[in-house]
Design a protein around this nucleic acid. Structure first.
Length: 383
RNA sequence: GGGUCGGUGGCGGAGUGGUCAAUCGCACCUGACUGUAAAUCAGGCGACGUAAGUCUACGGGGGUUCAAAUCCCUCCCGGCCCA
């Protein structure tokens, strides 16, 4: 299989590289905003363009439910439907196994063969199998796809996490087989083929992570993801697990830290050798009024044991809803060239949030994504 | 002038003898958010205190009662009706 990823520079574990997809090339490391249902909440194509977003993540389960695959096929695929020509990665629906079912067993059931979801909105039942997830992702026409996995909460017993690991491995083999079938029947050329990612599960247990990674590598994927939450039940970053799991993945493969994360988490993961990131934080927190600001930009490469030190941190956040911003006529962020910062004051943004107008969330989301884009650029420059 | 209904915390509005420092909503204050069931959720919101608790409070004043936002008298203020 042709390699779609090449490493350009390496600095200890961290590396910068270039990924080739049918929709274009992307330099690693990169961050993808979540366009779960085919849009980054509240942001237009122009907004995203101004921010400098290139690749994004869409979701198999959510798009399958709504608007449904018949419509997306009719639209000519998800790129065409969204009118987005940058690379798209689809998540498999595996995260919904965690967020919907593991967190609330009434929302569905996991069997060896399939996952049965009870829609949280309508209650309607829908099933996803590894094969179906892959087929949907081919119908979406994305550039990168992910194997359906069983994502257990980190506080499950080792026994249960081990069971999820074994199921994830078996499902990965089925996904790979289905992937090969789809490539064959759709007559997709090597240049046009989407990349396929396996996902390493194992909770906080290094032996399980290692075993899972080895088995997935045996099956063979373009890249490997870090599965499940990367923070423990107290929200603390699982440094050793992230570090070790990266080391279990072959150097020449892409390493995708799914759902990562806070800026400091991304910086750390990149230093362990992770290349790709996606997270709802910049957009969700933006909609909720939390704004990311640069502080000591030169401190980006802090040693990991100091990265959570508030004084030393390279960034800070403000909650624009706080009363103290009511009459703060300073710019939201000095030196940022996003739409929000070039035009508006903190007082104005506060007013937008107090008035509950969606414009506030939109400007804040775009600003936060700009912050993440700048962060990734800085990581590439520093290596 | 007569009658009648009402005056509750920043606002709206419950409560109509004890479990009321007073339901609830809004506003306000503060958190949380990590492969998006999230333009959401959680907590706080009379004063002092970390707290237990103490004090002052349901238009003003005066009563009844062991006990009053709740009952009685009176005054002030407002709505409506009749003159």
């Amino acid at each position: 299989m042709k390699r779609m990823f090449k490493i350009i520079r390496k600095n200890e574990k961290a590396r910068t590289g270039e990924l080739s997809t049918k929709s274009g090339k992307v330099k690693t490391p990169f961050f993808m905003p979540d366009a779960t249902r085919g849009f980054v909440k509240s942001l237009s194509k122009n907004d995203l363009g101004l921010v400098g977003v290139v690749p994004m993540v869409v979701n198999t389960y959510h798009l399958f439910l709504n608007p449904g695959m018949e419509l997306i096929r009719h639209a000519g695929g998800v790129h065409s439907f969204m009118h987005w020509d940058g690379p798209l990665l689809s998540d498999s629906g595996g995260y919904q196994v965690f967020s919907l079912i593991h967190k609330n067993p009434k929302r569905g059931k996991i069997t060896e063969d399939e996952v049965i979801f009870h829609s949280p909105i309508s209650g309607a039942r829908n099933t996803l199998t590894p094969e179906k997830s892959i087929e949907i992702q081919f119908d979406l026409g994305v550039d990168m796809m992910v194997c359906l996995d069983d994502v257990p909460p980190n506080d499950y017993s080792k026994e249960k996490i081990s069971a999820a690991v074994e199921r994830t491995i078996r499902w990965a083999a089925r996904c790979k087989a289905e992937y090969a079938r789809q490539i064959e029947t759709r007559k997709i050329s090597e240049e046009k083929r989407p990349l396929l990612f396996g996902v390493v599960q194992g909770g906080e247990y290094l032996d399980l992570r290692k075993h899972c990674a080895q088995e997935l590598v045996e099956i063979g994927f373009d890249g490997y993801g870090f599965g499940a939450r990367h923070v423990d039940s107290e929200g603390k970053f699982m440094e050793e697990v992230m570090r070790a799991t990266a080391s279990y993945i072959p150097e020449e493969s892409l390493r995708f830290a799914l759902g990562v994360g806070k800026p400091e988490d991304i910086v750390r993961c990149h230093s362990y050798g992770w290349d790709m990131f996606d997270c709802v934080i910049p957009t969700r927190e933006g909609r909720h009024g939390r704004i990311f600001l640069w502080k000591n930009k030169s401190n980006l490469k802090l040693k990991t044991d100091k990265i959570e030190d508030e004084e030393e941190s390279f960034y800070e956040t403000i909650n624009i809803n706080n009363g103290k911003f009511k009459d703060d006529f300073s710019p939201v962020s000095e030196g940022c060239d996003c739409e929000l910062c070039t035009n508006h004051t903190r007082a104005y943004l506060h007013h937008l949030f107090a008035s509950k107008d969606p414009l506030g969330g939109r400007l804040a989301s775009a600003h936060n994504l700009k912050f993440y884009t700048q962060l990734m650029k800085k990581l590439k420059e520093d290596d």
